[in-house]
Structures are given as structure tokens and as C-alpha cells.
Amino acid sequence: MKPFKYLPKALQTLLLANAVVFIIAFLGRGLEVDLGAGYGSLTDYINYYGAFMPRVPLELWRYVTYMFIHFDFMHFFFNMLMLWMFGSEVAEWMGSRHFVSMYFFCGIFAALFSFFMCILGLTNNPIIGASGALMGVFVAYYKFFPDRVILMFFVIPMRIKNAMWVMIALDILFANSGDMIAHFAHLGGVVAGFLYMAIYQNGPKVLYHSPLSAIFRLFSGNPEKYNRDRSSGSRSSSRRSDEPEILEGEVFYVDEQKRMDEILKKVEREGLQSLSESERDFLLKAGDKLRRRRGGF
């Protein structure tokens, strides 16, 4: 796990927002407030107005607020631990804009999925917690790093491409067990994660005219990427005017530091996958130069 200060800012914000709500709910247990239908603690107030209630689907704010509510410490701790561990690399790989977009899309979709399960009579329980959105992060991690080995249940070594399906199977198996875990929200987050990643990785080849493409145009630094066929928007084989000039294996710029800052900002916005081959080469060579200057290896 990376130290907090080195995490992408989007991930820092999500972790802090969850922590603030948890602390307020924890400290508010002894603070009495008017709930409208009677008096209760501030914690009750947060639950009463913030949790997602499948029976009141038109209270739209709940589709977002429920993701930030945790009352039990272990629920909060493990959700944030997983978000920290897996979200760090996912946010760096796809960029903060897409990470935030995917996170909220998966969380909202998870609530909608639970609502449809409620219509079918399979669940009617209030939902709180970041698990639905977190399952979308797991899907992205599975897509980016399928052969990474994780400790399933902190004990069993397993490749993420296998662990992902074990988690899905467990949610299906225990969906109606009455264990007070929002398994349907988890499954909704998984479906949303696969949907988002399909469009992210394949562009307009999947759901070309889908309303979801509007989300990609909004959060992408290159909106046209999701408005046209990828083949027509692919990189030209010829060198662009803004690409580096390579002379005898070295990269030369008038202001290398400025160029590096521009590339790093692009990574923050759009992720590592957005870099051209020349930009990747420049970062590698610049890193080597810095290490040589500092006497590193």
C-alpha cells in the first residue's frame, strides 16, 4: 500500500469523505435530533435520510449518499482498506477522471440493481456502504492486472482473475441468506464494472450509441475518442509535431522539465494508457537521467 500522500487526489478525496461521515456518525450516537417522525440520534438521522431505500427509489440523493455511510467500524475499515489497496493502481492506470466516473457509475448502478431486485421481491433492505462501487474497482483491477496474485480472505493465494469469479459466486450463493450483507448491490457493482470497462477498453465498438458514452465524453480529456470509431481515431504512424525528436537514442527538448510536467498531468487526468509510445519513452529516459544525476542505480 502506498502512503496516503502519494495516492491520486481523487482517491484521497473518496477516502477522506468516507472517514468524515464515519466519524460524524460515530460521534453523533449520543446527539439527539428531530427525525421528522420522532427524535433520534444524529447517527439515526444519517441512516434515515442517507441510506438507499429500495422502496423509495425516487429519492434520488440516496443513490449517492448511501455509498459514504458506514456505521460498523469493521465494515468501514475493510471497505476503505480495499479501496486504498486496489483503487490506487486503478486510478493511476485509468486516470482520476475515469476512476471517479466509474466509481460513482458503479455505486449508482448497484443501488438501481437492488431496486429491481426489490421489484422482484428478492430484497427490501436498506443499503449503506461503498461495497457496490468497490466491486466496480475490483472489476477494473481484474481487467488491468488479471494475473496478479492476492491473498483471498487474507489467507489463500489466488490470481485476481480467479478471485473475481469466486467473489461473484459467493454473492450469488448468499444473496438470499439474510446475513445483512447487500449481495445484490455487490452484483450490481460487478455488472456496472464490466459494462464501464467494456466501453473504456473498446471505445465505441461496444454500445456505440449508449447514453453511457456521454459519461466518457464528460470525463475524458479527449471527448472525440468516444464519438467516433477507434480505428479512425487511432494514432497516426507518422511522428506528430508535438512528439520528441530522437537523436542517437537521446530525447532532446527545449524544456524537458516542462514536457515532463505536461505528461504527468496527462497521466493524472487520463491514466497511463493514454500515453503515446513516444511519451512513455520520454518518461523512461527522463527517469534514467534523474537517477544518473542523483547517483542512483
Rank of each mutant, 00 (worst) to 15 (best):
P57W: 15
R230Q: 10
N222S: 11
L218D: 02
V56N: 03
R259S: 04
V139F: 04
F153Q: 00
G121D: 11
M102E: 11
S131P: 01
K258N: 01
F153D: 01
V139N: 00
L42T: 07
F4Q: 02
A198Y: 08
L275F: 13
L11E: 10
L16R: 02
S220D: 08
L58H: 07
Q12R: 11
S131K: 00
N18I: 08
M53P: 00
I215M: 07
S278D: 15
V100P: 05
S88M: 11
C118W: 15
S276Y: 13
K225D: 04
A51K: 07
N124I: 11
E89I: 12
A214L: 15
Y226I: 13
D147Q: 04
E245Y: 09
L212F: 09
P204R: 09
A185L: 07
M67Y: 03
L290R: 10
A182T: 01
P8F: 14
C106H: 03
L14V: 09
I168Y: 00
L83Y: 08
L58D: 07
M158E: 08
R269K: 15
P57S: 13
M82Q: 06
A140M: 13
E92F: 14
T65Q: 03
H75Y: 09
S231T: 06
N202H: 12
Y39G: 08
V155G: 00
A198C: 06
F105W: 12
L31E: 06
G221N: 05
V155D: 01
L35V: 09
R292Q: 12
D171H: 10
M164E: 01
P57Q: 13
F4C: 05
V254Q: 07
L122W: 12
S274W: 10
R97F: 12
I108V: 15
E248F: 13
Y63E: 00
N79H: 08
A133L: 09
Y39F: 14
I263S: 07
L81G: 04
F113A: 07
V64N: 00
F144I: 15
M53F: 14
I108A: 09
L264N: 06
F52R: 04
R239M: 13
G40Y: 12
Q273K: 08
R55L: 12
E268F: 08
I150P: 02
L284V: 15
F76G: 01
L60N: 05
Q12W: 13
Q201F: 14
